[in-house]
Structure formats: C-alpha cells, structure tokens
Amino acid sequence: MTTHLPTFDYRRPTSLGEAVRLISSGGSSTVVMAGGTDLVPKMKRRQLTPSTVISLSRVTEMQGIRYQDGATTIGSGTLLREVVASRLVPEPLRLAAATVASPHVRNTATIGGNLCLDTRCNYIDMPEGWRIANGHCLKDGGDTCWVAPRQERCWAVHASDVSPIAIAMHTNVRLVSETGERIIPLEDLYANDGINNLTKRRDELLVELKIPSIEMRASYYKLRRRGAIDFALVGAAASFALEEAGSAEDVRIVLTGIASAPVRVFEAEQFLVAEGLSPGSIVEAAGIAGSCVRTQDNTDLGSRYRKWMIPVAVQRVLEGLAMNTNERSADRGTD
C-alpha cells in the first residue's frame, strides 16, 4: 500500500484562459499543479490539503522555449529537462537547472514550479505525525516559529536553484490572471517571509520567463551534500553585464538557501562595480557577502557552517565568472 494523497477534485484546463478562470473562481483552497514535484510530497505529508487541484499539464500555451524580440522566453510549464537540453536557453541557466534534484525529478518538474517553489524548513517538511508530535510551527498553523521562537515571522528558506541565476540574468516574469496581466522583474516576485514568500496574487499564474539578451557573464555555484537529489546548502549566482571590455556596469550576486527569498548582496555588488573583477577584489567581495548575510538553523548542517560557506560560495561563483570567457548569447548551446 502506497502513501496516498488527500482527496481533492482534479481539474485539467486545456487553455490559459480556462486555467485562470478556474483559479479565480476557485476558493482559497484551490492550488495549481505543474510538475507536482513540490506539491505532491507536501500534500502526502498533509502540509497542504487543497479541495481542488488544477493541473496545468495540458495548458500548452505555458510550455515551450522561443527566442524573440531580443529575449529568450521560457514557458513556465517547460520541464526542467527541456530547459537543460535546449540550445535556446542561455548556458548558465541550463547549468543551474541541471543541479535541481535528480534527473527523474527534472523529467516532470517545471521551471515555473521551481520559481514558485514553497519555502522549506526543518520543522515544516516533515511527516504529519512528526509535526503533531513536535507541535505545529507558525507556517503549519501553529503560533511559533521553532527556528526563532521569539520572533513573529516564519524563517523557512527559499530553495530554488533556478531563481538566483535567473535574477542575476535580469529575468522578468509574466503574470496572468483573469483580470489582466503584468510583467515584473523576477526579483520582485519574492518577499522575505517564509509564509507569504511570493508577492503575486493567488489568482495570478506565472506564465513565462523572459531573459533579455544582454552582453553578460553569469554563473551559478551550488554547494550540496550529494551530487544529486539534495537541495543547496548555499547557492550563489553572479552576473557581470559588460559595458566595454573589462568594466562592469551592473553586477549581481544572488544567494539561495539562506533567507525566505533569494538574497541579493548589494554591498558586494557595489564593491565589485567600483573595483572590477580581480583575484583580490573577488576575495574581498566574498568577505563582504559573508559579513552582511545571516543564516538560521533551519536546513541541513545548521547555521554556523552555512554562514561560513557564504563567502566560499560567492568567491567560487565569482572565480567561475572570471574564468568563464563564454560571453553568453541567447542562441548558443554546447550540445
């Protein structure tokens, strides 16, 4: 006998229009399911017991990758496997997507689901009986965050491997609801709150990502325990938009696995804009990142080690950038 899901009604719209209509007419207990690789385990653990599940599996408008108007557009329903394999997708993003979970998971997981991935924590991603025995935490309907009991908020961690590199690459996302649509920088999709971690409205669907073609270098470094399956202990993405040879006008350093949202390390970014990329400045920028970002004891290996690893991850991703001479362009692929 296998662990089964809570009961729900299953809806399977075949168009975007139908999907957004179903969502806005559905109550607060309606969820959309893309690949389900985040939702299904959560539902099996009864972290979530929706009355209705809207499957996006047949909404073809949300799938596929194309290059148009100076941007790579990736439908949110595109599988991570397809993202990894597509020559249209900039290489740094492909490489980052290839670090998600395991090949099997990437065969059903979508990029949209990855960006909308729920926050994670030692106290919430646990079986139901465990959570009852331990006492439900704030995110789980209780009144205390077990990570930081004296504080009012939930500290669950943003864990996507794709968001940091996508933010570093200036990605925008298109959100569509029954009442209209808007395009926002991906960065603005997130809020640093473990419970309300997405700024989008419940009735908005993330329909696609748009990655502008900017001359830049970008890279992602994921520190993980095992080479597959595991989430990042710390993930760091960095990008350098190149104005003219050697000098950077825009530097981005984005961390995952640390706070409830992707974290941009502005202090280190500004330092590098001023100093340029050199072995010395990389070490210093990494140090700056290490000193201005806090960690909590809420995922694997605890806060002290992950705090130590922030400068290491930042230094490595920057070194990767410095070495990587493949200025990215959207139509280039390696396989």
Partner: peptide, 8 residues
Amino acid sequence: PVLSCLVL
C-alpha cells in the same frame, strides 16, 4: 523515466 509516486 519519471517518479510514479509524484505523478497524478
């Protein structure tokens, strides 16, 4: 190959 425990 997909994980049948995660797929509806």
